[in-house]
Amino acid sequence: MKTVFINCSPKKRFCASAYFLFLQRLFVVGEKVCEKLRTPADHARILEQLRDAQAVVFGLPLYVDAVPSHVLRFMEEMERFCRENGLKLSVYCVANNGFIEGKQNEPLMQNFENFCSRAGLTFGGGVGIGGGVMLNVTRILFIVDIGLLVLNTLLSEINTGNLFPRDAWISFAENAALLLYFNLGVLFYLARQGGHIRKGTAGGKKYTRILIPSFIFILFADIFFVIISVIDGGIFRGWLAKKEPSET
């Protein structure tokens, strides 16, 4: 069985969609092909991969309540391609948005359902994930934690000959458990969807989020944007001002 995973994020690196597709791949067996969709130049290559595939998984961000425009262009082309070649694929999606409610991905899921209906494909379902950006940060924090653990272990070995510094390992285990907890909802639904992809069945639309209270999430999101805006300088350039168009 061949499954094509399409990362539809326009970002070149550190995108949340890549993280969630990575997790989704863990729960799928058989031949797995990963593709990146950023420009129309990617269309032909991805469509060729679909010829002998049984399932396709779109990993994408939510833009203004729906599918990003560059993905819509691809879907139009894919619809024609699938009808002309009589392809019978199962389509799944893993959508994420910056807001905390995964349910905000619902219009996007409906776009995919309508797309499948027009292209003669089977909509296998999708997972809508809230707090995608923050969950993506948790994987970076996990990598940093591993780096710190390795560093502490090396220092401990050099200084005391002890290859198992207890405090460092306990601290690592605590942090890892916390990060895992934040991701539990996502892991559960991606594992569930992975089962449906393996069996070629439809799992329906499911919504989940980072597992923290929304008022804390909003506080962290605001702090995040303040820090980034200070670094980028936007905070000093009329950050919240009602800017006038400079052209006529």
Binding site: S9, P10, K11, C15, P61, Y63, P68, S69, H70, F225, I228, S229, I231, D232, G233, G234, R237, G238, W239, L240, A241, K243
Partner: peptide, 16 residues
């Protein structure tokens, strides 16, 4: 050109 998702219109050069 499509949006690149950089958030620059919020954090770097507001509303642009």
């Amino acid at each position: 050109a499509p949006c690149q998702g950089c958030f620059g219109c919020w954090t770097k050069h507001p509303a642009e």
